[in-house]
């Protein structure tokens, strides 16, 4: 089948790739562009480890077709840090022991970033809701929720 050209921004850089019509954004980012931060877990949108941001909105990379991302801005966990400086969410995840095996972490971080970008001061319930689509099988949800709340608080302090 004929391949199709697609251009988008990935973590701030312009990228152009040829994709299969049915290729998923997750496949394009990982095997096409070599950014292995988003993971494959279920391929059916139930586990959230493939979560990336498309124009700031959390999207499941395994259910998003690459051809629909023409001209969009894509963010993954690889682009969270500003050079050597960690994003507050990353620092909070480290501080609060919010990862065990680490496989769900890139998706969790992106779901959390989408939340904090649109709601800088979320309640605990809103945090739980925001990561409700992200499965952690090491069952470390409490430290993850605490880390996200701490990051929000820290960003609030910095803004004040």
């Amino acid at each position: 089948m004929a391949r199709m050209p697609v251009q988008f921004r990935l973590n701030g850089s312009d990228r152009a790739v040829f994709v299969e019509p049915a290729e998923t954004l997750l496949g394009t980012i990982r095997r096409g562009l070599g950014d292995f931060a988003p993971k494959f877990g279920c391929g059916q949108g139930t586990c959230g480890v493939c979560t990336v941001l498309v124009d700031g909105e959390p999207r499941l990379g395994c259910l998003t077709l690459s051809v629909t991302c023409e001209g969009r801005s894509i963010e993954t966990a690889s682009g969270l840090a500003d050079g050597p400086t960690l994003h507050p969410l990353q620092a909070a995840f480290m501080e609060h022991f919010a990862a065990q095996c680490g496989f769900c972490t890139p998706g969790m971080l992106m779901a959390a970033k989408a939340l904090l970008d649109r709601n800088p001061n979320p309640t605990r319930v809103e945090v739980v809701e925001a990561i409700a689509g992200n499965v952690c099988r090491c069952t470390g949800y409490e430290p993850i929720i605490n880390a996200i709340l701490a990051a929000a608080q820290q960003r609030g302090v910095r803004r004040a």
Binding site: L80, F93, F97
Partner: peptide, 8 residues
């Protein structure tokens, strides 16, 4: 942990 939070 650093590798986990940076996706590396």
């Amino acid at each position: 942990m650093l590798g986990h939070v940076t996706g590396r």
